[in-house]
Simulated assay, not measured.
Amino acid sequence: MAVNLRLAPPDAVGDLPIDHFDGLDTFEDLPSKGLCVRDLWF
Rank of each mutant, 00 (worst) to 15 (best):
P9V: 06
L16T: 00
D25G: 13
G14F: 03
T26N: 13
D39F: 04
S32A: 06
L16I: 08
L5G: 06
V13N: 01
M1P: 04
L35N: 12
G23V: 04
L7M: 11
H20S: 08
C36K: 13
R38Q: 08
P31A: 10
D19R: 06
W41Q: 05
G14N: 12
D29K: 14
I18V: 15
P17N: 01
L35C: 08
S32K: 03
D22Y: 02
D39V: 04
R38M: 00
P31Q: 07
P17C: 01
P9H: 09
R38F: 04
P31T: 02
F42Q: 13
T26I: 10
V3C: 02
P10H: 11
D25F: 09
L40N: 06
L24W: 09
H20A: 11
M1S: 09
L40V: 15
L30C: 07
L30A: 11
H20R: 15
F42V: 09
D25A: 13
E28R: 15
H20W: 10
D15P: 01
D19F: 11
E28A: 15
L30M: 15
D25I: 07
G14I: 00
D15I: 00
M1G: 10
G34A: 02
K33N: 10
F21E: 08
P31M: 00
C36M: 07
D25C: 04
G34Q: 01
L30F: 05
L7Q: 14
S32H: 03
T26H: 09
G14T: 06
L7G: 15
